[in-house]
Write a protein that binds this DNA or RNA. Structure first.
Lengths: 209, 209
DNA sequence: AATTGTGAATTGATTCACAGCT
DNA sequence: AGCTGTGAATCAATTCACAATT
């Protein structure tokens, strides 16, 4: 009998991040107010869609005027939980994993990779140019529990993916961003977001004819 | 008056790649036949959905029996255009770009990164452990035209993304896999597939509460 | 006059239910 | 008997059209 929060479409949540990014640009240009029309254009969507997306979270705009950039940005951050810096761990420090470690786009968006783990012992050292420590995989579970980590990024080989996911889930991780080319089986309270690079290319290939 | 090919959902195309991967596994285990039920389970979808997805491309299964693994795999490759090795170029050899260069998962799926380009001259050299040459960005357009490249992977900084996309499109690229955190404007005959890492994390964050 | 917020209409995707083959 | 292929039914997301508000 939980008050089911009106089922907001997954895609709306995705677009929220997109809007947020556009708002940042407006803020940088010290623009105070923006219409749904203008913001939608910047985000590459229809204005009605933007309005519907925002309306799920209450009445935030002003009729006749538009949206206040700062207030809207605030609201989206609140909804997405990006107003406070969230700790995230990385599992798998191979090619892709170490690129993700060096990637600094996460921090700007409210995330910080606080630790990395790898099963191969020669990866267990400081990756060049990165402050984040790489620990042996065996220490992962303890770390997650001790620091109450809720989110993890997985970039391990396909065959290692399911076991790693199981460990993560067992120690309390509830959100996984998965770069391994594998369909993960997880309990339904855990959410997996898979980014499958080869699959994205294949998809493109179809439309290229 | 073109015979519009019955509008196959984008998501069906995505799933085709997924099925393909599962079929590869079956092939490795020398399994000849598979039911929609079993294959769907492996791919993490419902069996009716799998059947509907496949049915878009003709009658490929055998009632009472299931699908022939080899034949189905063949058919999917044909549809996706992954039966022949496709040349792809990479633009932007930063952290993410060089990880993508080293990533060998593409080749297995029928793609080969044949050249990489970067505007910064000190990136223009061989990236360690990779055979692919990195060329100055200025040579990109000529290369694309000369080799008839149709697909490109972009991993450039946000502010460089649109100009690079324009160049690619102008020289004949019609499919772009975009890792830059930018909404690209392209003519509608060009298809862009964006993978936005920060955005994926934000999305996760929402569900993690 | 401009622009949001929203019920209704539409479009799209998934699932059901079962007819049709092997 | 078993399993695919598919029209019909359901469910979900988008777009429309306009009333409400500043």
């Amino acid at each position: 009998m939980a008050v089911k929060a009106a089922a907001i479409p997954k895609k709306s949540i995705y677009r929220l991040s997109l809007y947020q990014r556009c708002l940042d640009m407006l803020k940088a240009n010290e623009i105070e107010t923006v219409s749904s029309e203008a913001l939608a254009k910047a985000a590459g969507v229809k204005s009605t869609q933007l309005r519907k997306d925002l309306a799920y979270f209450g009445q935030i705009g002003t009729r006749g005027l538009g949206y206040n950039v700062g207030a809207l940005s605030e609201m989206i951050q609140e909804v997405l939980g990006t107003n406070s810096l969230q700790p995230v761990i990385l599992v798998g420090v191979g090619n892709l994993g170490s690129a993700l470690l060096r990637y600094n786009g996460f921090r700007k968006e409210g995330f910080e990779i606080t630790a990395a783990f790898d099963s191969s012992l020669d990866k267990v050292r400081v990756v060049e140019g990165v402050r984040v420590k790489v620990y042996p995989a065996a220490e992962m579970e303890v770390y997650v529990r001790r620091h109450g980590v809720k989110m993890a990024i997985m970039a391990v080989p396909g065959e290692a993916a399911q076991p790693v996911a199981n460990q993560l889930v067992a120690s309390g991780v509830v959100g996984i961003l998965n770069f391994s080319p594998t369909v993960l089986q997880v309990p339904e309270n855990v959410i997996v977001n898979s980014v499958d690079l080869a699959l994205e290319l294949e998809h493109l290939s179809y439309y290229v004819r």
